[in-house]
Design a protein around this nucleic acid. Structure first.
Ligand SMILES: [Zn+2]
Ligand SMILES: [Zn+2]
Ligand SMILES: [Zn+2]
Ligand SMILES: [Zn+2]
Lengths: 140, 140
DNA sequence: AGCTTGACGAGAATCGGTATCGTCAGCCGC
DNA sequence: GCGGCTGACGATACCGATTCTCGTCAAGCT
């Protein structure tokens, strides 16, 4: 029985010297429930605005520094975060240019093509992002 | 003999109802000289700060609305623009997480993989962006 | 040349995100 | 259990990129 991502994240942050306060736990559990694209404002709203927005940013930042979340930027100037689970599976995003909806997709052939580019690049690539923008089928 | 991108852009903007003032012409010619990733601040600096920054933004916005430039966002919160030339050739970006350098690459196999994803997506995809992030070989 | 209308520049406003700081509470050793 | 250290918290000030507002000016039509 594998630990949940939330348990693992709390454990890893504690080992990194962070304490587990109530905001940290709440944010981690929210992220574990979602698994795609949550913004700081989303978290703040989901927590009923009973926590300071700055604390939300702090927790998200600490999770990012510990490599526990991926930071996703789809070009609208709002940073979103999603859990990076042990399995290593990840996905990329389709953004509707009309309604702003964000959807996930994944494609093994695309991942292979990207890995080949990474190998040729001369960079120590840590992350890649692919964003497709266009009108979704309900908006066209 | 094909028209230059700058000439074409001025023509298309005029047809779209814009007038050609000095700032517009200067910005278009700057973009035509570069072909990768120029920010509004870059343009403003290149023009010796003799023009209003707001005008630079306005021109870039009008070019984007007319589909003459691609807007590139590599996740550092700065919007960059590059000309979209007739030939349709385009590239994607490698960003150094240490020094912030942005480099271009292109890869036909990657483009094919993306086109297949686009076809399956149900979206009318207008643009795609791929960003690879990691340490460049001088920063490692 | 006169008129209309968009282009321009300066500066205010907005907005996401970050830094600061005083206070509070979790955790440690006793 | 108690005192003290240290990080977590919330409020608020701040920052930098972008957008808005508005008075003025000039491009282009007649
Ligand atoms: Zn996602
Ligand atoms: Zn991927
Ligand atoms: Zn480029
Ligand atoms: Zn491409």
């Amino acid at each position: 029985m594998p630990k949940t991502w939330a348990e693992d994240a709390q454990h890893r942050l504690r080992e990194a010297g962070y304490r587990n306060g109530p905001v940290r736990i709440a944010v981690i559990e929210l992220l574990d429930a979602e698994n795609c694209c949550v913004s700081a404002a989303d978290v703040h709203a989901s927590l009923n605005e009973r926590v300071g927005l700055a604390s939300v940013y702090r927790v998200l930042e600490s999770l990012h520094a510990a490599g526990l979340v991926r930071r996703v930027d789809v070009g609208d100037g709002i940073a979103r975060y999603e859990p990076l689970r042990e399995s290593g599976e990840h996905h990329h995003h389709l953004v509707c240019t009309e309604c702003g909806k964000v959807e996930a997709f994944d494609d093994p052939a695309l991942e292979r093509a990207i890995r080949r580019v990474e190998a040729k690049s001369g960079y120590a690539v840590e992350q890649h992002d692919v964003v497709l923008q266009g009108a979704c089928d309900t908006c066209r």
